[in-house]
Design a protein around this nucleic acid. Structure first.
Lengths: 341, 341
DNA sequence: CTGTTAGCGCATTCAT
DNA sequence: ATGAATGCGCTAACAG
């Protein structure tokens, strides 16, 4: 650390003014240099950058943002961090933001649209460049705020409704339907369903409905259901699978509300020595990594959570102005046959 | 939505000034009301709040923050979002922030301290109230920035070094040692190690070193290792387990770099019909949910990621001033016997 | 290529 | 209990 300059004392916040004084230039010159904007003589730039480094100056974005009236924040509102799919969306968001000098501000709602309202208000107060939410269910007040904000609004995960501005995701209804057709084609006739609470997450219900429709088209139906009131988990998947098999032994395939639940089903079978998929078949949803590595790869539908996050950002960066008509971006899904169904 | 007032047009940003005009009060009165600070007549408050609602006014925090010179942001810098432990830390952070009207700004480093430097600079520019990072490894420039910022700095996960300001986490060295003693006590004598890249994550190495020391104290050692250069995953856990067993059949217990790898080991055994723990034993690290639900619960060490996030926030909220001496908060760990070792 | 002048939207004195 | 004035730190015209 060559030059033994006197360190700035801890409390004195260093501003453009101090830097400008020390470097014998004006504040705007320093500002221009810090933002690589406008013409500056190479000599001045070097001189200023040196004092910037020496003083450890970091421009205050709060002030910068206020002065320039543009934002460097992206609001992200997700239901939860405990369901692995949302961190995956966040990964995509981070990837999309790479190199853009925007920072994500993240909040969670616990699947509660009233909390979402509070959280959205809090985020909009930061005047973000755009806001990303999960799903289409919002309070009236939330809708009003989002609309008035006039910034780009992305509703992620789901494309089965009309978005406020942009929707990025897949059709869960079609996915459910595809699952039904796939399993019928494989010869299954006695369907069970193992699920978790779907009041908080509309997408779970959409998949279920799509599945039922596909079955109905072939004159079939869900013969038995085992559901928990709570959140999805491997433990609940195990427990509900046990219940389903006890209450409806004729079932030859169970469709699960998601992979967590389905992995629980697989574990139950492993523990009880039930042969998959001959004796009982398991079908999940999401395409989580864990499913791929089971002794037998889990049969499931792969959604593209990472892609959803990434595309969402790409879209808002591509056109910062809200167009007159809503945009829908389908990130699609893929039925993965696997070995458990 | 009762009162059919004319909606503000989308573009006109509503500021205190407009609200004040419409409500026939001064800007300061509006400001006071919005912040519930200072005395205001109940009548005025109601009158103003009504126009606030009608106009859909949301105070601009950027401006507020600049004017009051205090921050409402917390910076959080983590290595990645793909390793489930970090979202868990974030959950704790969110929980700790509950009710505090602070917002987290999150960035990831991909385990690269040069990227960390960039990211920290970006976050400090927002003048956050505090910043949370993972680990003790930072570039000199990062250290300098953190020091100069004079805000509270929390180094999370690890407490095996001296922190800049606060460290919240557990001793990974002690954990490794505890694993060794536990397994020796259970009668194991032929140790193997299955691991992943530890250059990027010092904590993996600390556990390994602790383990080796415990073994050495009993005249034992790691007889064989199977390691991948890449990140940890269930798939790599499977693959490396196969390798270990092929190259050193005498091994009776393998310690894994973490639960992801260990679950891979368990899956390998399930597929190959290897009896756990008699024929081969598996010991992980982290205490992930998935491990608990395996047909046989995974033997592991439980760390408290959620608690780490939560305590970190609690600590910085409790004392916003940086004390003269570093603080260390031990969130501890717990050896969980499980059924695979 | 560089400096000067005005705000950005709000919170904080201090008056009244 | 309310209002007027000042400035937070920076950027954006505009001069020169």
């Amino acid at each position: 650390m060559g030059t033994k300059q006197r360190l700035p004392d801890r409390k004195s916040k260093i501003t453009v003014r101090e830097v400008a004084r020390r470097a014998n230039v004006s504040e705007s010159t320093v500002s221009r240099i810090m933002r690589n904007k406008g013409l500056v003589a190479e000599a001045t730039r070097e001189k200023v950058m040196e004092t910037v480094r020496a003083m450890g100056y970091v421009p205050n974005r709060i002030a910068g943002s206020l002065a320039s009236l543009d934002s460097f924040l992206i609001g992200v509102v997700i239901p939860s961090l405990s369901n692995i799919v949302f961190p995956e969306v966040l990964q995509g968001v981070h990837a999309g933001l790479e190199g853009s000098d925007l920072q994500p501000v993240i909040s969670t709602t616990d699947y509660d649209i009233d909390r979402e309202e509070v959280v959205v208000r809090g985020i909009l107060a930061w005047k973000p460049a755009a806001i990303l939410l999960a799903g289409f269910e919002h309070t009236e007040a939330t809708r009003k705020m989002l609309d008035q904000s006039a910034i780009r609004v992305v509703e992620m995960m789901d494309i089965d409704s009309t978005p406020i501005d942009i929707a990025v995701g897949m059709s869960h209804h079609r996915a459910g339907h595809a699952i039904g057709r796939h399993l019928i084609a494989r010869g299954y006739r006695h369907f069970g369903y193992v699920g978790h609470d779907w009041t908080a997450d509309r997408r779970v219900r959409l998949r279920y409905d799509g599945l039922c429709e596909a079955l109905a088209e072939s004159g079939l139906s869900i013969e038995s259901k085992a559901m928990t009131d709570g959140a999805s988990s491997v433990a609940e998947g195990r427990a509900q699978t046990a219940r389903l098999r006890a209450q409806a032994p004729q079932i030859d395939v169970a469709v699960y509300s998601n992979d967590d639940m389905a992995v629980g089903g697989v574990f139950h079978c492993l523990s009880e020595g039930i042969r998959l998929p001959d004796e009982f078949a398991v079908f999940g949803f999401n395409g989580l990594d864990i499913g791929k590595e089971l002794p037998q790869p889990l049969s499931t539908v792969r959604s593209n959570r990472y892609l959803i996050g990434k595309k969402s950002i790409e879209e808002v960066l591509a056109s910062p102005e809200r167009p007159p008509n809503p945009t829908i971006i389908d990130t699609d899904f893929e039925v993965f046959a696997g070995a458990t169904a």
